[in-house]
Design a protein around this nucleic acid. Structure first.
Length: 591
RNA sequence: GGUCCCGUAGUUUAACUGGAUAGAACGUGAGAUUCCGGUUCUCAUGGUAGGGGUUCGAGUCCUCUCGGGAUCACCA
């Protein structure tokens, strides 16, 4: 409908003022609630063509539309805003289109559609996932779905940082204190077990520093020379040299971690199409750096370390290989990027990584450019802010991180408590009940995180997120189950839309809301914002609830009206389901 | 100190990318409704950190000040 009016406006301007304008210049929006009308045209931009005051211009265009455009009931002009009232039959035609199309608002990718890689999660294998990763995973997963719905060929990737000094630290601690402990023996998730030894390493490290200081060493010196650290470094060198024993231990402990991660990913409901490992890509990175060194794009210091000079671009010097020849983070990321380009020839790559790495990605892009990769501009860093808790900031050093598994469990527990308090779900079997509660707990978590603008630091309040009222996931889930209940009672068959039926304001509001879904999906795809989808779902659910409150659906006597309302409910539920699907949120059929 | 991000009612947030009187939600106070599933609605309360600029029009763009965060490692 909006598109049609856009075209009408272009013709109106052309016929009235003899000026050909582009459709993008037409500012058409929903009429605000306080004014009479459905669509509003902003006429200010045309004043320079009409050479008349805003009111007069609005009147002219309004008159033209009334005479020439189909479906205009009436119009009014307030200041520079032309409010158009659209005929009810137009709305019903529109609704018929919506009801008649499958997956309204979704486009399916063709073979030659753009290829987009979405990287997210990117865990280190020395500790379990935490709240920050949750935001990352949810954003990444949702972005992938949104891009897919926009008709792109999307590949979800993950880069696992499975090598480096941090992993060696866990390994050293496990060798020293582990007594052959394994996840099976301990009945502990592997990632948690390994994470525990990482913490143990740091405890031991600090203890050794303290005792060295007590023996008269300076703190600075002590933190360099502590024996455990030496041992970890030795292990890293051994790892890079391919020492058999070290590699075996490394593989063994990593396998524990992967098993744990898989469980976490499953409980969060996210997945990947392709996983890259740093232990494989870093070699490629090193080759790339060495080649670039030969071509004198990079330079070597006297101590043997390799650097990129970025001062010409307003940045600093950046190290790419250590003096002992080992790789750094940037080295492997270069390798990963090139690997991926060779694998997929992507049109775009989206890195979902926290904003603390803004500098890193700025540098990555620049170095790719310097090295002559023409596609350097196709990588995009999707950065997001930190998650804080009501109790304060998360600091791993202070032990205030929130473990991902624990949080999911807490959400589930909270859902159960609330549900018991309300005394529902009585007659369902236990497994059904559990599944529903998982969906509610997880839906609450996901919705609460995704409705916020990713750029902003956010505060996560578990209690508030699971509220059944307000702008929350459970509220939308609840609306959906309510619709389902109505449809079950109605016999749930698809109704034909009779375009002669009379509709009221609320019904029109819902149709209008339904009709903008495609443009919201498109917008979310362009701006990469799941929050747009989240807020859309909330608005739709709220509008439906108002309608539900004011009018009866099943109790309506007139058959045509009743059928229409049932179909309207069906479409609303369908749209909620699709919208929430884009966020990776499941809607239970009952709750 | 350099660079980047952020600052909207008591709190959590939105604003169609420069459009109307800045919307919601939670909370608080008053009232109506409570029939398909836990409702919903109305009213009250209260906000763009501050100054200057750009123009028909600024939360949005520019600039300065103030506040918060990130980063500037031979960590990842």
């Amino acid at each position: 409908m909006e598109n049609r009016f856009r075209k009408y406006t272009v013709s109106a301007i052309s016929q009235l003022y003899g000026e050909e304008i582009d459709q993008s210049l037409v500012q058409l929006q929903e009429t605000r609630n306080d004014f009479e009308g459905d669509l509003t045209l902003v006429v200010f931009p045309y004043l320079r063509f009409s050479k008349k005051p805003a009111e007069q211009t609005g009147e002219d265009i309004g008159k033209w539309l009334k005479e020439n455009a189909e479906g205009v009931e009436s119009f009014s002009v307030i200041k520079g805003f032309l409010n158009i009232v659209v005929r009810n039959s137009e709305w019903l035609e529109l609704f018929k289109d919506i009801a008649g199309s499958d997956n309204y608002g979704f486009s399916s990718p063709a073979e030659d559609s753009p290829v987009i890689l979405v990287e997210y999660s990117s865990p280190n294998t020395n500790k379990p996932l935490h709240l920050g990763h949750i935001r990352n995973n949810l954003l990444g997963y949702s972005l992938a779905r949104i891009l897919e719905a926009n008709g792109n060929n999307v590949c979800k990737t993950n880069i696992v940082n499975d090598r480096g000094i941090h992993i060696c630290k866990s390994m050293v601690a496990w060798k020293r204190f582990g007594n052959g402990e394994t996840p099976d023996k301990k009945e502990e998730k592997g990632d948690h077990l390994v994470g525990r030894y990482y913490v143990k390493f740091n405890d031991e490290y600090n203890r050794e520093i303290d005792s060295l200081v007590a023996e008269g060493m300076t703190r600075e010196e002590a933190s360099e020379k502590a024996p455990v650290l030496e041992e970890a470094r030795e292990m890293l060198r051994g790892w890079e040299a391919g020492d058999k024993e070290i590699r075996e231990l490394w593989e063994r402990m990593n396998s524990w971690v992967y098993k744990g991660f898989d469980e976490t990913y499953r409980s969060l409901g996210v997945s990947f199409d392709k996983i890259y490992y740093e232990s494989e890509t870093y070699k490629h990175g090193k080759r790339i750096v060495e080649e670039a060194l030969n071509r004198e794009i990079l330079y070597k210091k006297e101590d043997g370390s390799v650097w990129a000079d970025l001062t010409g671009d307003g940045l600093d010097h950046k190290i790419l290989l250590r003096s002992d020849g080992t790789a750094v983070y940037m080295t492997q990321d270069l390798g990963t990027a090139v690997d991926r380009y060779e694998d997929y020839k992507f049109d775009k790559q989206v890195y979902v990584v926290g904003n603390e790495q803004n500098y890193h990605f700025q540098v990555l892009k620049l170095i790719l450019k310097k090295l002559g990769y023409s596609w350097f501009d196709r990588i995009y860093h999707f950065n997001y802010g930190m998650v804080e808790l009501p109790s304060g900031k998360m600091k791993s050093r202070e032990g205030t991180v929130v473990d991902a598994d624990e949080l999911v469990e807490t959400m589930y527990e909270t859902a159960r408590e609330m549900s018991e308090e309300l005394g529902k779900l009585g007659d369902d079997t236990n497994t059904d009940k559990e599944m529903i509660l998982r969906k509610i707990g997880l839906g609450a978590l996901k919705y609460y995180i995704l409705k916020v603008d990713p750029k902003k630091n956010m505060l996560f309040n578990p209690k508030e997120s699971i509220d059944f009222n307000g702008n929350t996931g459970p509220f939308i889930q609840y609306t959906y189950t309510r619709i389902n209940s109505i449809l079950r009672k109605a016999g749930k068959k698809k109704e034909c839309v009779d375009t002669r039926v009379e509709i009221n304001k609320k019904e029109k509001d819902i149709i209008r809301r339904l009709s903008v879904f495609p443009s919201i999906v498109r917008e979310a795809g362009i701006t990469l914002s799941p929050s747009l989808i989240a807020n859309y779902c909330y608005d739709l659910a709220k509008e439906f609830n108002q309608f539900y409150h004011d009018y009866t659906i099943l109790g309506e006597k007139e058959k045509q009206k009743r059928d229409f309302r049932i179909e309207l409910s069906f479409q609303t539920g369908y749209m909620l389901k699709n919208g929430m699907w884009l966020l990776g949120i499941d809607l239970p059929e009952k709750m």
